[in-house]
């Protein structure tokens, strides 16, 4: 079971769109996929038409009083399941703090699902916190969407430095430019130059496209309702890179 996490300290950069689309594409490839919507705003749950509610809330999951598999819901798409968001996830930091080995807690919670799923996608809320540290420890591959600005790139450097301080398991990082506005010169310039210079950058970029915004109207992944769109093609290529980088076989 490979754990992917869409992560960025900033919000509104395309984390949820990436998690939903890549999770869908992985399931379409025949993998058994679980997407965990860790964001209390519940955007991924909304996009997949599932109520953002978990019986017992985040406390029951983190403390293990409710088995994680009992909270999982099937989506409308074969092979793709969702562990929904819950508003109590806003307190996950506090809950993790009271658990043993908080930084390793998510990995421990996911371990029993190894026989049931081939891939898990963690859709993280924008923050730098105990929760994000636990996500970084659980993930095999961090998918980091970045708006092509100098400050965003600096954030990525901070993240890779932080991950570099981990003892033992360190997640691989695959950054990709997201929400590229072709009308902005800086966007196109950075997106054209950096991927060739830095190994952690994906060759694929995700442009700012209205069809991606349409996801919240259609409540489905782009590749499901607009399979021939540019966005669907770009997510397809990005999934190919992520899959290869994570060494997902079969």
């Amino acid at each position: 079971m490979k754990v992917f996490a869409t992560y960025n300290i900033k919000g509104g950069v395309g984390k949820t769109a990436a998690a939903v689309n890549l999770g869908y594409l992985a399931a379409r490839d025949g993998y058994r996929v679980l997407l965990w919507d860790l964001d209390p705003q519940g955007a991924a749950s909304y996009l997949l038409r599932i109520k953002p509610r978990v019986k017992g809330g985040g406390r029951a999951l983190i403390h293990g009083t409710k088995p994680i598999h009992a909270a999982i819901k099937g989506t409308d798409f074969d092979g793709l399941d969702l562990l929904p968001a819950d508003f109590t996830y806003r307190n996950l930091d506090l809950l993790l703090d009271s658990a043993k080995q908080p930084a390793r807690r998510l990995a421990a919670l996911l371990a029993p699902l190894a026989g049931e799923y081939d891939a898990v996608f963690l859709d993280c809320p924008p923050s730098i916190s105990l929760l994000s540290e636990s996500v970084l420890h659980a993930a095999a591959l961090l998918l980091v969407p970045l708006i092509p600005t100098t400050l965003s790139v600096r954030t990525l450097e901070q993240l890779t430095e932080f991950v570099g301080t981990f003892n033992g398991h360190r997640p691989d990082v695959l950054a990709f430019f997201s929400m590229i506005d072709r009308r902005k010169r800086l966007h196109t310039q950075i997106a054209a130059e950096l991927p060739g210079q830095r190994p952690e950058f994906a060759a694929t970029v995700i442009p700012a496209l209205s069809v991606i915004e349409q996801m919240s109207v259609q409540r489905a992944p782009v590749s499901a309702f607009a399979p021939r769109s540019l966005a669907a093609r770009q997510y397809g290529q990005l999934w190919g890179e992520a899959r290869q980088r994570a060494g997902l076989t079969g």
Binding site: A71, I72, K73, G74, T75, D76, D81
Partner: peptide
Amino acid sequence: LTLTPVRGY
């Protein structure tokens, strides 16, 4: 006719 539940429902 085969009726199959979606997980969680």
